[in-house]
Design a protein around this nucleic acid. Sequence first.
DNA 1: CTCATTAGATTTTTT
DNA 2: ATCTAATGAG
Length: 720
Amino acid sequence: MNGIEERLAALNPHQREAVTAPDGPLLVTAGAGSGKTAVLVNRIAWLIGVKSVPANRIIAVTFTNKAAREMKRRVQEILQGEEVNPVVGTFHGLCNQFLRTRHQAAGLDRYFNIMDQDDQKSLISNLMKERNLRYTELTPSGVQSYINKCKESKKRAGESEVYNHRSELLEHMYEIYERECEEQGQVDFAELILRTVEVMEHNAEVRERIQQRILHVLIDEFQDTNELQYQWMEFFGGWRRNISAVGDEDQSIYSWRGALSGNLKRFERQYDDSLVVRLEQNYRSTKPILDAANALIKQNTNRFEKKLWTGNSGGSRIKYMSAGDSNEEAEFIVDQIRAFADKGRSLSEFAVLYRTNAQSRNFEEAFGAEGIPFRVYGGVRFYQRKEVKETLSYLRLVANPNSNDASLVKAINCPPRGIGEVARRSIAEMAADQEISYWEATCALADTGRRWAKVRPFIKLINNLQSLHATYSLSELMELTIELSGLREHYEQHTDPTEQNRVVNLEELINAAAGFEQSQESTGSADILDRYLDSVVLDPGDTHDDDPEEKVQMMTLHTAKGLEFPIVFLTGLDETILPHFHSFGSWQSSTFRKSKEQEEMQEERRLCYVGMTRAKETLYFTRANRRMLRGQWENYHQSRFVQEVPRDLIELVRSTEVPEPTVINDAEHVDWLGKSVSHRKFGEGVVTDVEANVGILYLTIDFETVGTKVILSEFVSIDS
DNA sequence: CTCATTAGATTTTTT
DNA sequence: ATCTAATGAG
């Protein structure tokens, strides 16, 4: 017998209805903390255990790898006994598997390489440089975001409307980029999904085989799917229509990545016979926290009104602390955690959440100084460090020298071997002329005279590592690479702490490889190096996941989605931080549009909502009047979101003297409108719009030289 | 070609 | 403040 009956009995009627829904489309809209993941987990277990659906014919999609692992674990836990293996993964992970086994049908190199955002950006940057395409109108990141936007809405180069010079250039870059990726066997994140959908669309044989095999498709976090992912769902699950989608529009926080929370409604419309279940009972938070979160999210327009409720009673109000500066904010949190910990709370019960990764630094310093153990998720990623990227470049060359030109460029002169710009250019030229890889070009050039003698040891090194690859394990190969390449020696020579730390990171990298080996023990014997190199890009998260140690958890609001903690510090509740204003008095914003701002503001509010609803029993709001930004102290004002929470749900914990926000009346509004003003950086302009919020005036100003920007009133002066 | 110094930039969030 | 790219001296 298995544990399903027992589990079903523990669910509420709505949850049970969703879990045991008959075949056919199912849409679950679920508020924060209402147990939507539990519904998915139990439904998978129910399908396997009660309906006897073979586990490997069920496919479930989650948003993060962490969530996928958790889901597999929980399904297995319910179905005690024999091992079950439903297919669970992220869109990107699943599409990668699909393409690896069908690279031929997909028209991809057998050993195609996956680029992360950094790789993609430097490829674009190099393309622009080498082909002299450094147009003033375009930046590499501009091109990058254009290409990704296109791919996310299933558009290839040439399929977008060209309406001005700039968009013409962008299309041109997209074309060049596509060709380059094709030639080099490079695949970016969006391409994984796009290519998969295209194979399903055009290859009837593959499509039919897959559609026959898959009996059920389940998708979590449906509000965060984009056009491409919606189509993926249709190709993989649309034929049998056994699709379960779970989501919450109030937690849609990835529209900047092309996500369309409207996909929830689209699903409901398109599969009009679907069973729709709404989960509105919150099991996570105390009443004051839930009431506060509900009040906040109510400010968003055009949303389906939910009445999220809880049976929990009691609980304290939100504790609000407004600090003089960011250091004080951090110290306050340290003090509070100390006090709780003295009462016997475990450090792992605390989470410090922030809008931007840059904010973590303050907290890291304060916690470090006080000797409180903490763990930062994400941040400057381990796998993005220079020394780590260098080592991985060697491994990529070992795995497949012919589809990793960028890796060759990186590895060939790290550590310095006297092979520089001139040599690189010759290699690139020859590779282009003869349509061969950089590696082949380098090998050919090595025999062409004394000038190329320096590359011979390098070629030998790679060949040597390739032969070692056959006999040594992944972690051993990693260690040999670091030693034989001279990377360790190179970094050990330096005495300053930054460089010394790199040696430590190299050790850490070997450990990570060993950890990967262990986690993959049960899986087949397909080349572990290839799978490791994929996982480094697709799942660079925690190298040692189930860290049992007691540590305070620190992460961005985005990373926190789907998690819960007894005590949560929601930090940086300041205008321009949360809500964040990328369009605020900064560089390019000639395309600033009011409607877009509205949309972005609502997403910021949802982000705040996500943060608040992570808390089970205690929630803190913290902010600071002054923060260090790029080496300078800047002034900040309390976030509008604090005002949007009813006063009686907030308790002032400790507050340094905050000047009462100046109340702006209508007369002052009118005062600004139409006035000529000047700004220190942007020069002269005219105020075209005024908006007041929480005592702060936001002026839309049409500048003579730099176009339209939104500026805080305190940064401009009226011309006399 | 390497190393050191300097000028310049820095779009928030993640697979 | 901190990182990278560009520049110049050896």
